[in-house]
Structure formats: structure tokens, C-alpha cells
């Protein structure tokens, strides 16, 4: 029991959220293993973003709590990183300064910051854009800065909220592979929210399917397919169909 508990990086217990009378999240409980890649899917407007904002402490829960390494999640103690749906690279900072931003807020040593930022720049192939400003880059490159900024934190928990929602299919495939590469290389624990079922099946080790409001967990689906995954293989299609059925239930 104890050994099992140690294995969990994140424990979510009875998470409930009301906005006034609006019951958004209802008694959500689940665990995330260290280094796991978890995808969360659900119908539009089911409170996926509220759910993430609770995890980052941008909102506080009405009831229940979130534990990281056995302690209540606290941005002061734990290292959380968030990739927002909207472009959130600071327009007044260059690519490199954007990557340094979170690390400087956390007041890491200059040497450590240099090392981590250089690693991320080379992992993401951002060297040619080091001194560029976000507005000079394409949307996808700007989004990669944000993803790099999040991974650079070596986060205890990395939360991604439909980061590829605005992109065309080619970029999406490219960036999905990239995020998998970063995740494997850095061993981060990732919660990835998406409304794209194929994306969820392609990325996740486990998928949480949420219901409509008030949101609870409808089902957990383990995706045990070898990587890189083939979106046309019968096993892949099977899982995708199953998840789609589960979401369509209402």
C-alpha cells in the first residue's frame, strides 16, 4: 500500500468546484504515476479548462484537494508548468528570454538557467530564433517557445491545455511527436487536455474521459500501444472508436 502510494506523483481527491450555483466539477478522484503521460478528453464545455486551472491553483477548489508527492499542491513548493491554449509567449521578450522567464522568476542560478535553456533550445531546434521576438515567428514556433518554457522548468507536473488547438494537421503531427520526444527525454509528468480523440490516443499512456457538467470521470482507458503509434493500425482505431463512443453517450 505504502509502496504503491510512493509511486504516485499526483493524487487528486474528491475535487469539487462550484462557481456560485454552477456545479462544474463533481467529486473527481484519480492518481498520476511519476513520469506518466495522461490525456484528458471530454465533451465541449465540460469544464476541462476549469479542471486544469484547479490543478495550477489559478482557481481554488470548493472541496477536495490535489496532492503532489503526498503534500497539498502549492506553487511555492512544487514546480508546476502550464501550456495555455492561447499564445502566451511574452511579446516583449526574445525567444531565449521567454525560455529563461520562469527560471528567473524562481531565482535559479545563472549557470543552471543557461544550461537548461541551452538544452531546450537545442532539443527544439530554436537556435536560429534565439534572439527573435515572438511576433517575428510563425504561430507554431511561438507555441513551441511556450512548450519549451514549460519543459525548461523540469516541472513536477506539466499541464497542457489544448496546446495544438489552433494548428493544422501537419503541424499538429509534428508537434505531437516533439512533445513525446521531450517527455521521454526529460521524464516529466504530463497532463494533456484535448478535444481531439485521435490526438489523445496518439499521445497518452492513459486517457481520462470526462462527462458533461457537473463533470466526473466516466472512464479510464489504458493505451498500451508501442511508439511511434500508427494512427491507421486496427488497435489504434479500436481504442479511438471506444473513446469516441464513451464521449458520445449523452
Amino acid at each position: 500500500m505504502n509502496a504503491e502510494k510512493q509511486d504516485y506523483k499526483v493524487v487528486v481527491k474528491n475535487l469539487t468546484k462550484y462557481f456560485g450555483d454552477l456545479h462544474v466539477l463533481d467529486n473527481i478522484s484519480f492518481n498520476i504515476r511519476k513520469g506518466e503521460f495522461l490525456c484528458v478528453v471530454g465533451p465541449t464545455g465540460c469544464g476541462k479548462t476549469t479542471f486544469l486551472n484547479l490543478l495550477t491553483r489559478i482557481y481554488t477548489p470548493t472541496k477536495g484537494d490535489l496532492y503532489i508527492d503526498g503534500k497539498p499542491a502549492d506553487p511555492k513548493k512544487h514546480n508546476l508548468a502550464f501550456v495555455f491554449q492561447e499564445p502566451s509567449a511574452m511579446p516583449w521578450l526574445t525567444v531565449e528570454q521567454n525560455l529563461r522567464f520562469g527560471l528567473e522568476i524562481k531565482k535559479l542560478s545563472k549557470k543552471e538557467i543557461d544550461e537548461r535553456v541551452n538544452e531546450i533550445i537545442s532539443l527544439l531546434g530554436l537556435e536560429p530564433f534565439r534572439k527573435a521576438y515572438p511576433h517575428q515567428l510563425s504561430v507554431s514556433t511561438a507555441q513551441r517557445i511556450i512548450i519549451g518554457r514549460a519543459f525548461a522548468m523540469n516541472p513536477d507536473l506539466l499541464l497542457m491545455d489544448e496546446p495544438y488547438g489552433q494548428m493544422d494537421i501537419k503541424l499538429r503531427f509534428y508537434l505531437e511527436d516533439e512533445v513525446i520526444r521531450l517527455w521521454k527525454k526529460l521524464g516529466s509528468t504530463v497532463v494533456f487536455i484535448t478535444h481531439n480523440i485521435e490526438e489523445a490516443v496518439y499521445l497518452a499512456e492513459r486517457i481520462l474521459i470526462l462527462t458533461n457538467k457537473p463533470t466526473t470521470i466516466k472512464e479510464e482507458v489504458i493505451v498500451d500501444l508501442p511508439r511511434p503509434r500508427d494512427v491507421t493500425s486496427p488497435e489504434f482505431v479500436e481504442i479511438r472508436k471506444h473513446v469516441t463512443e464513451q464521449i458520445k453517450w449523452w
Binding site: 506553487p75 502566451s88 511574452m90 522568476i105
Partner: peptide
């Protein structure tokens, strides 16, 4: 959203003012 980025990185009020709001 820029202030939220600060919140997520646990920036204090002074950091939010000088490193996010003013720039």
C-alpha cells in the same frame, strides 16, 4: 494570460509588476 503565466510560475506581486505588467 500573462499574469496567469506569472501565477503559475509562482511570481510574487513585485515580480508580476516589474517583470510582467510594466514591460
Amino acid at each position: 494570460i500573462y499574469l496567469d503565466v506569472g501565477t503559475m510560475f509562482n511570481a510574487n506581486v513585485r515580480q508580476k509588476l516589474f517583470q510582467i505588467a510594466i514591460p
